[in-house]
Every structure is written in C-alpha cells, then in structure tokens.
Design a protein around this nucleic acid. Structure first.
Lengths: 214, 214
DNA sequence: GTCTATACACCGATAGAC
DNA sequence: GTCTATCGGTGTATAGAC
C-alpha cells in the first residue's frame, strides 16, 4: 500500500524534527547550563517559534526525558562496544570499567549532571527513559558477579567510590585530573578490602580463568 | 549618646528581619525544593510584598548566599562542638568525623545540596560566604595531619570517598541507611590502603599519643 | 526608611487562526 | 504544522505614598 510508505515517510520526518529539537537542547545545555535551557532558544535554533515545538514535543520535560534516555543509552552502547577490550585480570578489568565511566562523565559534565543528579526542578525521568539506566546497572552487576562480587553491599560500595571520585573531580577540579589519577589506587584499595571482607565466605579467584566470553 | 543606641536598635531590627527572611527561605526550600524558592513566597511568609524584600536584601542570590554561609558555619560549629568527644584512636576518629558529616548531610538534603552542589542557575557563593567552607576544609586538613595524613592526595581520596557515600545515599536511598552503614568499612579500607601506600615513606603512628588537645 | 503599586522582560504552556 | 496572541508565573526594578 502506498498509504503506508507515505505514513512512514511522514513519521520519519517527524522523528527527524524531534531529533533536531533534542540536539538543539543539548547544544543550549552545554553552552548555558542544563537549567538554562529555554524553549524559545531551542525554537530559535531549529527555526521555529517556541509554541510550534509543542507540535513535536508534549512539554519541556519530555525533551529532558529524551536527553536522559539518550545519555544512558549512549553509555550502555559504549560499554558494550568495548566489551572485547576488557582485560582478563580482575583488577585491571575493574579499573578499565571505572576509567570508562569516569571519562564518560568528565567528558560531558552537563550530560553527567542530567544522568545522575536530580537538579532540574520539575523533571523526573519516565520509566521508559529510566530503562537504559537500569540496564547499565544490571550489566554492572552481572560483570561484577563474573569476578565473584555478588554481594549487594560490595557493588554498592564500588558504585559509591567511583561516583565520589567523579563528583569531586567535577566539583573541585573541572578539566583537571586531581581525582582521576586516584582511580587505580581506589580500585586496588577496594579489591584488597573485598578479599579481606569475603575471606573464608566466598572463594574469589585472583585470575579469572572461568570467564566465558564470545 | 542616645543616637547610637537608637541606631543599634534599628540595626538590630533590620538584622532580625533579615534573619526572618533567610529563615523563611529555608522553609520554602525544604518544602518545595531549593530551586523552587520564590521571592513572592518568602515575602508572603514574612508578611511583606515581594518588592519590600529589596529593602533588606539586594537580590535573591544574596539570600542563597546567606543560606550558604549559614549552612557551612553550622557545620563548622558543630565540628568544634564535638571536639572533646573525638576518639583518640585514629580509625575511630576518622569514622567519628565521617559519621558526623554524613549525618549532617543526610539530615537536611536541601542544605547539603546548597552546600556542595552548584545547582542554582545564577548563584555563585561570594568569597565571604565561602570562607566558613574553607575553614572547614582547613580544619579537616589539620586534624588529618594530626594522624600523620599530610599528603594532599590522601586527603583528597578521603573527601571523595565520604562524599561518594553521601551522594549515593541521598540519590538512591533517601531516608535509608544502605550506604551509611558502609562508613566504618570505608574508613578501615582507606586506612589500610594508607598504611600500605605510605609504608616506608612517612611513619604513621597506629595510636595517637603525641596529639595535644586542650 | 519602609512599604505599596506598578511595570518590565523573561519563562512554560495554551487557544485558535490559517 | 506553524503561526500570533495571550495567560499566569518568575526575578527584578523603580516611583511614590506614608
């Protein structure tokens, strides 16, 4: 049927416009800050009047929502993309992941702010937008389990440690490396503690010979 | 002179009104969120019209500034207040401080947000408001030095670790204790790493016999 | 001196013409 | 779909009453 192809073409055009809007929102956010994004400025950049945006987007928060989902999807795909580069060694692997997360965060502070801090007044990510964030956490849990790190407390601690380094870096030395260079040390410290804590309860292999990867 | 006492009385009244305004701002912030504070709502609570606030305050950011300074001063005084209760033992002392900071943060998330996150669009704390924050950091450095922790990297790491626990707690389990109960473990982990890292470079006393306190 | 009244420029959002 | 016009908000500023 011709109707369908036409409908698809229209739908594609609509989606493209939506992407344009979200991309313009990213631009404004990076230039002026996340909270300083205005519909009028977005509209100006895509060549519209502000109210016309409502033909493609239900609200300003829906734009934030799309950005939120996009950011977490980006990170998730990034992690999957480097899968074959993961070191076999447990310590190196943990550092590898942490460095990936750290660089991703520091590389785009505005994106990190949207992903991890509830800073925009009325905005709460929708369940659909939150899904890729959950997927990332599930991935993390699975990968850590491959290293014998299965206790929720242990994963919680690791998440908090890396998040703490990122936050300190962004807050107190943006653009620098004052906390970034503490990543390796933090990972070693964490693993040493882990071995001491779980000693006698769950055997943890120092190398990772039983890990199967495609 | 009568003129001076009168001037003082007026000045006192003015200062009291200013305190009232800042206190109302805290109320609004805790009820609706830090970014949702409006001058009109503050004015309503102190029985004024919004523009009348400008007789006591130069701008909205000056209110945030006063709140910022007040929060850090509160913390600083709190730390000084518990001075005599600090354990002699290095590990216990570190945990004691961390717990104090953690509880202070978790007890009033809005206050912590204002103190440690740059989340309000146009607001940057003035040098005067920042002073008590600097004083707290200097205090921390001094106290850690008493335990032989003098390297900036070591202090940086400690700050990041505790901050990470606080952030995770507030972001992922507000009102709970999922990351709070990791404080002791984190302190032990940190100290163990410290002893290994600085072994052979700077002797670190396991007990703290040479600490002089009034 | 302190307040009220009024206004300005901006914001997100909506209604309705075309 | 996109426009203009407009609404109820916001922070901020000023004129003028008392």
């Amino acid at each position: 049927m011709l109707g369908e192809t036409k409908r698809n073409r229209i739908s594609e055009r609509r989606e493209a416009t939506r992407r344009e809007i979200v991309e313009a929102a990213w631009q404004v956010a990076r230039e002026r800050g996340l909270a300083e994004v205005t519909l009028r400025e977005i509209a100006r950049r895509v060549g519209m009047q502000a109210p016309s945006l409502y033909g493609h987007v239900a609200s300003k928060n829906e734009i934030y929502d799309a950005m939120f989902a996009q950011a977490w999807t980006q990170f998730h795909e990034g992690v999957r993309g480097i899968d074959q580069a993961i070191p076999e060694d447990r310590e190196r692997a943990l550092i590898f992941f942490a460095r990936h997360f750290f660089d991703f965060a520091v590389h785009d502070p505005v994106r990190y702010q949207l992903m991890n801090q509830r800073t925009i007044p009325g905005f709460e990510p929708s369940p659909e937008a939150y899904a890729p964030a959950v997927a990332v956490l599930e991935d993390l849990g699975q990968r850590m389990a491959e290293f014998g790190i299965t206790e929720q407390e242990d994963v919680d601690l690791w998440v908090a440690l890396i998040g703490g380094l990122v936050n300190s870096q962004l807050a107190n030395d943006p653009g620098g490396d004052r906390w970034g260079r503490l990543l390796e040390r933090t990972a070693r410290m964490y693993l040493r503690d882990l071995d001491l804590t779980t000693a006698g309860t769950t055997p943890v292999p120092t190398t990772n010979g039983d890990r199967s990867r495609a």
